[in-house]
Nucleic acid binder design. Sequence first.
RNA 1: GGCCCUAUGGUCAAGCGGUCAAGACGCAGCCCUCUCACGGCUGAAUCCCGGGUUCGAUUCCCGGUAGGGUCACCA
Length: 596
Amino acid sequence: MASMENNAYFAAIADLFFPEIQDGADGVDAAGTAGMANAAADYEAKYPARALPDGAMVTRLGPSPTGFIHLGNLFMATVNQKLARQSGGVFLLRVEDTDQKREVEGAVESLIRSLAYFGIGFDEGVALGADGGGAAGGGAGAASAKTAERGAYGPYFQSERRAIYRAFAHRLVREGKAYPCFLTEDEIAAIRAGQEASKLLTGVYGPYAAWRGADLEAIASKLAAGEPYVIRLNAGFEDSGEGGTGGAADETITVTDGIRGDITLPKNIMDVVILKKDGLPTYHFAHAIDDHLMHTTHVIRGEEWLPSLPVHIALFRALGFAPPIYCHTALLMKMDGGVKRKLSKRTDPELALSYYIADGYHPLAVREYLLTIINSNYEEWRLSNPELDSANFLMTTEKMGASGILFDLDKLQNVSRDTLARLPAAELADFLICWAAREKPDALPVLRENRATLEAALDIGRAGEKPRKDLAYAAQIFGFISYFFDGYFRMEDPLPENVSPEDARALLAAYLAGYCHTDGRELWFEKIRGLAAAHGYAPRPKDFKNSPDMYKGHVGDVSTVIRRALTGRQNSPDIYEIQQILGEERVRTRIERLLL
RNA sequence: GGCCCUAUGGUCAAGCGGUCAAGACGCAGCCCUCUCACGGCUGAAUCCCGGGUUCGAUUCCCGGUAGGGUCACCA
């Protein structure tokens, strides 16, 4: 191949399309690419390798600010954060806002806040700004004072990295590894239609890459005419070949995935777009540039990215970068019409993080659940280390599953009950108050003013080796203890079926008459047994069981009558404790009300 | 449709050539018990199918099948 000619051709195109980038003296150095001191090389120098301990992992979250955040995002964030943190590495937030069409106002702040709620924080990258992303405000994402950036590898908004992408695109064009393409939407559609008709692979590649190596004159005149264009990768850059007719997709590449081991994929032959007509990079290009410049060691992302891995590998090769270690996780699925399906932000609002925040799932509980599905040995670890913080668990990519995970609300709730059972009542009370401040403002003053009652109520039956485990999430917890607060006390359940209203009255009247708030638990219950016997109810359930015909019911029915009077419900934790928390006056009032 | 990933009870899953095929959630029953919850015990329920390799396959290979993902100037 006549490399001198080609070099001149490439240089001419590069000058045409990247006039702002001067190659300086090197522009003349048509012979070799080695040692070229160009803009791209400057950037590489600007972002040197990180000084981190051996084995430190640099991971990142690269959300596009489209507004909705679901459990799947938190799943990814949890994995990335954990892996970085436990290895003494860096976890950074890079906002992938290269698609203006999909951008949503305030999405970045709400993302950061939602993740923060669940204990996800970043060591580097985009963060909340000075004004914390307050209420109103004009500017979107990058320019806004609502966000700030931390770290030496920024900017961390891709929309602010235009010049960087252009520098590397320029370098690729100079080397003949990328080129401008003026194919219109219609033309591409036509190509596609033809390919489909002949059952060929669709896309811009090989013979269909009309502008690959196109005539300089034609290119220049299109540009002069102001026609929109994109920059495409020349997928044939390694073929060093004649005409780049490329085509034969038989070649494969093998990549070792941190989760899946070796995977074999067809080598990329597509001349994918790397710079869109608006000058912003596509995900693929931005990924290669950013993760190289930011020195990401492990790219952990969902398996939906597997099909584009060949593109990414090709890009890394073209750019001369060493690719990171890829870890493609299983996807979080939901059940849909009897079939598993990938979570989708659009159609699955019930899996939005906001839903779990509103219901008041505790961040620790959600994290705990996520960890159990992320690493198959986590649950076992937790069983043998019930008291340890999850930070002590060592997560490994090898123990991550490769097949889709169905989200299981039952399991989340179970994990949550276990988790909350380990939390001190004071902490639970704080949590509940925070939740009420957000989601149930009417209850906020009540909870605040009755803090002692709240804590005591939350703590019922939680002492000892076998604590109650019925607290799952704030909304449920509030309902569970609401009867302690007069404003929320309601007669919710009916009398037991085998207790007549007359009996109930008589029972309550007698109970009230004999009530002594300072009675010990034993004495208290002996009185109830006596009450039962006096009114034709078996003092012991076994008596009733043995001779059901002799009684109207048993002592359990009697306590249900009392329990209902006190709590409005047939079921509740220990009545004695409830009475002690309620206080004598309230106990008497609640019973008296039913006797009027 | 092409390409890719995946495949153990309803769910999450351990397993890594020889196991009565762990465990957890859920479910059913029993026990404990003044109700609920907790706890304890018991139970039902799984290796997708077909070929190989092997003395022996859930495990290794091949082929089906099924499910999922992806085929953009979205990420």
